[in-house]
């Protein structure tokens, strides 16, 4: 049997604070194929971000291992670039500088200066931010900041692109634009993507599979829903698509009927 591209094997995570240990994740098993777009959805506090950070190498799991191309993941690295929820751009660098700092580090040995410059510009063009290259983060809008964050992550040519609620802080229209951009980029480059979200439409629209998490503590994967909608997907046509409606209803049913957060208003 062929080894999966990315594999979570029996991942468990507990945080210890003094005598108290809280189990956040338990028995997470998941295989992701190359080029697949997987979303992870669940209520707040279900440990989705923890799982993403384990894959990113920013956290060490208590039990189990993550394998990427057969190798154990145990530290952060550019092969698992992260798009952070709050964009995490360095405010003293320009838009260009924020992408260049990653490109210079990752390709400093393998690419010449001119090649690196072209690569930075190429990735800024990919997210339509080339015209704002000399602006600083505080001079551009939230959506534009997140575009730069995506460009920075893509520029590292990661094996897996990790997105931690990438559009959570944006308004609905900007979010829709960025989702379209991400779909387009995914279609063009064929990246393997793991995205955390709590937006049902976003998950169904973008993903090949939606992984639904049960509620914490000791959250685990409740259900995995394959989305077989043909690509390219257009949100206007999908609005009336029956299969789309069925997938959406399935996720909603999981989140709100079977795994509702008790005593917490959504």
């Amino acid at each position: 049997m062929e080894k999966p591209y990315l594999r979570f094997e029996q991942i468990g995570m507990s945080f210890r604070r003094g005598q108290m240990a809280t189990e956040v994740l338990r028995h997470i098993d998941l295989d992701i194929a190359k080029g697949e777009f997987v979303s992870m959805i669940g209520h707040s506090g279900c440990g989705k971000s923890t799982l993403l950070n384990i894959l990113g190498g920013l956290l060490q799991s208590t039990t189990g291992e993550v394998f990427l191309e057969g190798k154990v993941v145990d530290e952060p690295g550019p092969d698992r670039a992260i798009v952070f929820q709050n964009h995490s751009l360095l405010p003293w660098l320009t838009v260009y500088g924020n992408v260049a700092i990653a490109v210079d580090k990752v390709f400093g040995a393998s690419k010449s200066k001119a090649e690196r410059h072209d690569w930075v510009m190429h990735n800024l063009e990919l997210v339509q931010m080339a015209q704002a290259r000399d602006k600083r983060p505080h001079e551009v809008s939230g959506g534009m900041k997140q575009r730069v964050g995506i460009a920075r992550a893509l520029a590292m040519q990661p094996k897996v692109l990790l997105m931690d609620e990438p559009f959570g802080a944006l308004d609905a229209l900007t979010r829709a634009h960025l989702q379209d951009s991400v779909m387009e980029i995914h279609a063009r480059l064929g990246n393997t993507v793991l995205m955390i979200t709590h937006d049902v439409d976003e998950a169904v629209l973008l993903s090949d599979r939606v992984v639904m998490m049960t509620n914490g503590p000791a959250a685990t994967i409740g259900e995995v829903l394959p989305i077989t909608l043909p690509r390219p997907r257009r949100r206007l046509e999908l609005a009336t698509d029956l299969e789309y409606a069925r997938c959406r209803a399935a996720v909603l049913e999981f989140l709100y009927a079977r795994h509702r957060v008790p005593s917490r208003a959504a």
Partner: peptide, 26 residues
């Protein structure tokens, strides 16, 4: 039965039209 009301198949967010054309920047 709060959940039932939330599962209407077409949400508002999905129905928001997104103009595909990009405007020229002046």
């Amino acid at each position: 039965m709060q959940a039932a009301t939330k599962t209407d198949p077409v949400s508002l967010a999905a129905a928001v039209p997104v103009p595909g054309a990009t405007a020229e920047i002046v």
